[in-house]
Amino acid sequence: MTPERFATIISGTLKAWGVEDQCVLRTEDFSCLITLNSNVFVEIAFEEQPFGNIWRLREKDQKGSVHPSVGAALKSLALILCPNRKVGRVVFANQK
């Protein structure tokens, strides 16, 4: 992970969710404070720990959560920033 890639993941995800324009980002190395419409504050951070890499999420005045993968972290972030967004579930057809 590099700081550039971390920033790309956050900004690209917000773009995909259509909330990029409503968010203010304060990114510093592997941490980003996202402010949505001046009333939702969530911090997302990537950390390298001796036991492996983790993603931390913390809403203002709330206990944070820890996630072992980018997928799990973005899933939790979606619940905070755009809880009503419909998500897709991959289905592999069994055609043969």
Partner: peptide
């Protein structure tokens, strides 16, 4: 598989 799942999850019907 994880990549495809995450794309579907994040992009939804936009993919």
């Amino acid at each position: 598989t994880l990549f495809l799942e995450l794309l579907a999850e994040v992009l939804g019907s936009d993919l």
